[in-house]
Amino acid sequence: MTTTLLEVDDLRHTYRTRQGDQTVLDGINFDVQRGEFVSIVGPSGCGKTTLLRTLSGLLRPTGGTITLSGNVITGVPKGLAMVFQDYRASLFPWRRVGANVEFPLLGRVSKAERRARTLESLSAVGLADAADKYAWQLSGGMQQRVAIARALAMRPELLLMDEPFASVDAQTRSDLEDLLLRVREQFDMTILFVTHDVDESVYLSTRVLSLSKAPTVKTADVPVPLTFPRDQIHTRENPSFVETRSEVARLIRQASPGGLAAAAGAH
């Protein structure tokens, strides 16, 4: 029934800088099945952004292979869209909202199709009225919705998101989480979501991967035993939610420097 969309095999990356080499990814392995929502959590600086950049083909890893829909990735693959944390810099300020959303489709689909998809995507994020504004005239949460709409317009099989909700306030963040779960159903996407918020990872996902500090390996692969649709109040009260979030939090603590030392001392 399930088919594998993404296979990551012994992925390694070493940054070569003037100060010396720094190994960030030290052999990462995981698969993502179609339809999954996988969150990746890990301490700051462990290489989550580096991982997403290699998966999106923006950065060529120094080792290992990434396979998307059976094809080994060598550049930016088709069927993939990326949402960046820095929505301000990711939206082009000289283009209006609608023009930003259709931008990736230029030269690829007809004008009528572009217009239809732009409207559909903006409606899906509740911003159909904002098409003629400039992104910088909108609030932060609205800007990130524009970035999501643009990703939707690309009709990706796999959506990569790098801490997309890290710079908005708590209420906006909850709204954006629920919006993301809605459009995931509507557009039938597989999502790989980086966050350092444990609650968020459990609330959104079908599975949570946790990473160690650099040089980084995968330390855990935790399925989330919760059904959809999820609800900000009820899901978070659910004993399974509480249990899973505690487990993930424990795993992250063990992966952080203090946690490792404590674990070694207890050994």
Binding site: R53, S56, G57, L58, G75, V76, P77, K78, L80, A81, M82, F84, D86, A89, S90, F92, W94, F103, P104, L106, M154
Partner: peptide
Amino acid sequence: TDGTAKATARSFGWSRGTVAIRVVWPSAV
């Protein structure tokens, strides 16, 4: 030209030339 803006454009699957014309040039205007 903002690095994230260029990365965004490349994530659309655009070549460096296309990124230069559609993103770098307008940023430089």
